[in-house]
Design a protein around this nucleic acid. Structure first.
Lengths: 188, 188
DNA sequence: TCCTTGTGTGCAACTCGTTGCATAGGCAAG
DNA sequence: CTTGCCTATGCAACGAGTTGCACACAAGGA
């Protein structure tokens, strides 16, 4: 059900079409909740049917028409209700960790390039977060003083930054461990 | 498909029944991959049908019989193949982050108790990891010198510890932010 | 001219994952 | 002796999420 809520939040921040939402889910909101355009279109249709959203056909020039969605009163109420009920702390799912444990039954050194690839992806994401932070929150163009919305978006972004930094440090630890094991004789 | 691989790793570490696997997915492997017993039983059946696992009926006294699974040669090969192909870096899914951004459209202060609850859950998980680390890796009962399997399990556990520490620090940041906003006048 | 890229929406089929329920025996506490 | 918990396996139904494909039009480059 969380996709619904992520869509409500995103549409409250800014009304938009399914396509636009899909692109937001590649950045911004997508940093901590992912969805494909298929899923988004399907859920938007259902939410509209449930009266959570209003839709408006918008003609555009040089582009196909779009359906712009915005949050209706029941949608706002649904979000508010969800905010007041507890959600369970996340259960992490980390494929790479499974691989690392699995490497004990194969060749640990073969994982090195894979881990380096992940490290590079996280480094790039961190750089991306930091430039976004500069642009939207700490740079000269940022709203002064920041509103509640900016404050909350910023603290979420700081979480992303902390996550990436922690992950990069851990991947360095993993690489050091794999190199150490590569130097030692293999065996189960 | 990652559940299959997590099961292969877990059964290589120690053969066992669906029930036993389900319990491992509540600790150990479950720290970075979750699954319910339903899913596990279904996947075990499929994997056995695909020849990845061998099954053996084991009679027990005072308890129902169980089916003990162990990895067959094709299962080992499937794991090895997976280890050699790249997986995409994780897309995080963090419901609490969605809530925090959503709080801008409701009452931010109402989230405080929820965030505190999460903080407590992460604190408990960290304590649990640390005691497990002491028991299995850094304490006096740990194997000396550690084998490859221990080294890799340990580095994964260190990742869990780093994750929990980072998360607790971030939740403190979130709490400070929410308190600061609570002192200021509300408004969208 | 054709091919690719981008905007915009959507169906169909599938796998993954969750929830509720069912069965069945043993064991322990009230 | 009944209630509840633990071990142990499983079905059925649903919801969440992915993948592949399709259509339609516009713009730009080869």
């Amino acid at each position: 059900m969380a996709l619904e809520h992520a869509i409500l939040v995103s549409l409250l921040e800014q009304p938009g079409s399914g396509y636009e939402l899909a692109r937001r889910f590649e950045r911004s909101i997508g940093y901590f909740w992912t969805a494909t355009h298929q899923q988004i279109y399907r859920v938007l249709k259902r939410m509209e049917g449930d009266g959570l959203l209003r839709v408006r056909e918008v003609a555009q020039q040089g582009r196909p028409d779009k359906k712009e969605y915005e949050v209706a009163a029941p949608g706002r109420a649904a979000l508010s209700q969800w905010l007041h009920e507890p959600v369970e702390p996340e259960s992490i799912r980390h494929e790479l960790a499974v691989k690392i444990r699995g490497a004990a039954f194969d060749d640990p050194a073969a994982l090195i390039s894979e881990v380096e690839r992940h490290r590079e992806a996280h480094r790039a994401r961190l750089a991306h977060y930091l430039s976004g932070e500069q642009r939207d929150f700490t740079g000269p163009g940022a709203p002064q003083p920041p509103g509640i919305r900016q404050e909350l978006q910023h603290v979420v972004l700081r979480g992303g930054v902390a996550y990436e930094r922690m992950t990069i440090a851990w991947l360095d630890d993993v690489l050091a461990t794999l190199h150490r094991l590569g130097a030692a004789p293999p065996g189960a």
